[in-house]
Design a protein around this nucleic acid. Sequence first.
RNA 1: GGGGGUGCGCCGGAGUUGGAGAGCCGGGCCAGACUGUAAAUCUGGUGUCUCUGACUGAAUAGGUUCGAAUCCUAUCACCCCCA
Length: 376
Amino acid sequence: MKFEVQSTDPASNARAGKLETDHGSILTPIFMPVGTAGTVKGLHQKELDEVVKAQIILGNTYHLYLRPGTETIRKAGGLHKFNGWTKPMLTDSGGYQVYSLSQRRKIKEEGVTFRSHIDGSSHVFTPETAIDIQREIGADIIMALDECTPYPCEYGYARKSLDLTHRWAKRCCDHFDKTTGRYGYNQTLFPIVQGSTYKDLRQESAEKIAELDREGNAIGGLSVGEPADKMYEVTEWVCEILPKEKPRYLMGVGTPTNLLECIALGIDMFDCVLPTRNARHGLLYTSNGTINIKNLKWKNDFSPIDENSTAHTSRFYSKAYLRHLIHSKEILGAQIASIHNLSFFLWLVGEARQHILDGDFAEWKQMMVQNLDVRL
RNA sequence: GGGGGUGCGCCGGAGUUGGAGAGCCGGGCCAGACUGUAAAUCUGGUGUCUCUGACUGAAUAGGUUCGAAUCCUAUCACCCCCA
């Protein structure tokens, strides 16, 4: 993998870059649609590529391991072959499930034991098996196993958890370096900064993670319920320490405003379920604000969903029709709304990149942020 | 035309066989939530008002009774059977 910072914004820490993988290059800053189970819910790969213009998508180790199972993905020839997405992919390690499925897991030094949410069976994920499984899934960028801590998190627990995450990160790196990709292209491993909302822990973590000297670094444990200002503050502490010449990935973030604020702090990569999940639940993002398309006020509004959208479906179909589809729980509604939101997110980071290249990102961001959180 | 039955919430169902319903379940509807996806999910609201409390309410109009959704009479609507 190669990463190059192409331009830096004069008035902030925002940068535009290019990340090259064996499945193609990624122009940053970038938003990565989440496709947990090997699919970005509701979209064909063709739509993801040609309409949404996604450059890289996510998969999830825990979910793919449980279903369809590692063996099936190996037999398919890797996840790219299995789902037909030929561009770059990234897999999360299962570290987020340590947080989201906290009722169903036990953490030990060796690793995490999950009780499957599908059939209740027990499965042990260690740093080593997390790497092995991700080698078999075959994403271009794979993640270290970490513990994503909740918010709020007591200092004592955050301290203990952070030390474990660091030991796991080291084991992930060691195991990664002893193994190779099985499908003939390169993979790269990103370790993850943790430390909850504590400055000393975050700074220590950023230093330790940077010392591992991988090709890119991630920030985890944010967007778990803390106020947005706290998220920005932590991101700022960490970005000051993580090397500038390597990509910085802020995991699980976020809203359009979150994206712009964190790009300004020096983040290059984002992923989040918000655009797809909220789309299915009827919340649409536009440059003028958000729309709850289920609201009565759109019942007879036959204007386009978003005349400024890059997606033809959002210019073609009306608000009233989409409202009807979502209300009726019609599959097409989820599809149109998901295409809409993802198109907007990809448009937004593309615009951000262009404004960084043009040198007026900071002003543009200030203007955009005024409207993004308005409820239309 | 004759006989029998049933009527309460926006809809469907349950329940109430003289003793305190603004009241059960589901749906609909109206809102809200959602951030490395156990999520096409979850939460709340859904008679009226001057709203920490009141008022009205069991098809409609009367009647019996201390007390009626429940019993009686008439009317209306719907369903079933017979002609």
